[in-house]
Amino acid sequence: MLFFSFYKTLVGKEITVELKNDLSITGLLQSVDQFLNIKLKDIKVNEEEKYPYMISVQNCFIRGSVVRYVHLPAGDVDVETLQDHSRLEAREQKKVQQQAQQQAQQAQQK
């Protein structure tokens, strides 16, 4: 959830998505979903002469699972907020885990 929410704050900003086949696509973030699938518009592939496969494409959808890295605009990233959210989510995650364990124990006792 943390990264899904984070990406939503970057809609309209320019990012570079580096895929697991070494293709790097730069474009404006149009939308994102819970799987971190990404839609970009006004795209440009880096080193286009070497990788001309998308010359006639302006808008594209990238499957989240093929992403290696995303280069982010540093000025638009609030690191303090990210760190707070990471701690919060870790705490939530633990609570869910503990509850599941307790339920499993109770079920065993019965």
Binding site: N21, D22, Y51, S56, V57, Q58, N59, C60, I62, R63
Partner: peptide, 30 residues
């Protein structure tokens, strides 16, 4: 499926495919 891109018809019409020299795209390596 790795990427789905919308083809811009104008741009695609102007491509001269026989002049585009490039290596095949690399596969996705997880």
């Amino acid at each position: 499926v790795a990427v789905i891109g919308e083809i811009d018809q104008e741009l695609d019409k102007n491509l001269n495919l026989s002049d585009i020299i490039a290596q095949p795209m690399k596969p996705i390596v997880h």
